[in-house]
């Protein structure tokens, strides 16, 4: 018998390699369900999953919703812009109200780092962090690791280059925790203004020049420039950023053979990745990532359901 020994999935930082492997292996068995004509199994019949999203999201929210539905759970979506949040209700009051309706799992996205952790302490439901500020985005890192494992056959020993706005990126942080735990060598690259000062304490090498970072890389992971988080000007213009950091054909000669290119989406075409690379099936695995996302989230919901008894 297997068991994920926790009530919540809040971040990759507090997960063990066994727990990560368990989720990835379970997710592999869920892939097949999405290829069936009837894409549904009765496993979570009668369970309810609330997607509580305080930030805009298409793919993560849709992915969690599809994952829940394919397991026969009832999924309810609440987005801040159309809820009592606009009337001034606090996160905790909203959560307590929802708790009183007895859902089983709450999937939370919030712009404040630590919001899911706070919720997890305050309510008895299982909480899944679907992105909290610039802190963590565990389901994204898990689906990225699943994609890498499928395409490369392993994670340990690979060189993974993460390029872009490291400072604001929860995707980068979760991936750094996960990939280094699973034995990959991670390097990061981005403008100095987008690089946390003590990033190397996370066990990665930091570069400001993309060419140096991606040399011999097996995986190149491009990050989205988060326009909504650019309060202060960290670079002069998008054009200048693109000139230095946009992944294009010429870069692919520097990487290791058969390197794969990843992006968590949504893509700013021509800013982070040139369109010919993003659309090149020989290296781009961007749509594979989306496909794996549903299976990984099914695994997360499945393993958390049933409580801790």
């Amino acid at each position: 018998m297997i068991k994920l020994g926790k009530k919540d999935i809040l971040g990759i930082q507090e997960m063990t390699t066994d727990e990560i492997s368990l989720i990835l292996e379970t997710a592999e068995s869920f892939l097949e369900i999405s290829t069936r004509e009837i894409k549904k199994v009765p496993t979570l019949r009668g369970k309810s999953v609330i997607n509580l999203f305080y930030e805009a999201s298409t793919r993560t929210r849709t992915s969690f919703e599809i994952a829940g539905k394919r397991l026969s759970a009832d999924t309810i979506n609440i987005s801040a812009s159309t809820s009592s949040v606009v009337k001034g209700e606090t996160l905790l009051d909203t959560a307590r109200t929802l708790e009183a309706m007895n859902p089983d799992i709450i999937v939370l996205r919030h712009s404040a780092a630590g919001a899911p952790h706070l919720l997890a302490r305050m309510v008895r439901q299982s909480i899944i962090n679907a992105g909290d500020g610039a802190h963590e985005h565990p389901s994204q890192a898990l689906l990225d690791m699943m994609t890498i494992k499928e395409k490369k056959g392993r994670i340990a020993g690979l060189k993974v280059a993460i390029v872009g706005d490291i400072l604001h990126s929860r995707v980068a942080r979760s991936n750094i925790y996960g990939l280094t735990k699973m034995g990959a060598r991670v390097v990061v690259a981005g403008p100095a203004t987008m690089m946390p000062r003590d990033i190397e304490r996370m066990g990665v090498r930091a570069y400001t020049i993309i060419e140096e970072a991606i040399a011999d890389a097996d995986v190149v992971m491009m990050l989205r420039i988060q326009m909504e988080r650019q309060k202060q000007n960290v670079f002069p213009s998008l054009r200048e950023y693109a000139q230095h950091y946009c992944l294009s054909r010429r870069h692919m000669k520097l990487t290791g053979p058969d390197a794969i290119v990843m992006h968590p989406g949504p893509i700013n075409r021509g800013v982070e990745i040139s369109p010919d690379i993003a659309d090149d099936p020989a290296c781009s695995v961007i749509l594979d990532q989306v496909n794996k996302g549903v299976a990984v989230r099914m695994a997360m919901l499945y393993l958390l359901s049933g409580g801790n008894e």
Binding site: I2, V41, R45, S305
Partner: peptide, 17 residues
């Protein structure tokens, strides 16, 4: 995934393909 006792327990048999 089709078992009738699956949702009741936190313990689960490893899921095979």
């Amino acid at each position: 995934l089709y078992r009738d006792d699956i949702a009741k327990s936190g313990k689960k048999a490893p899921l095979g393909k």
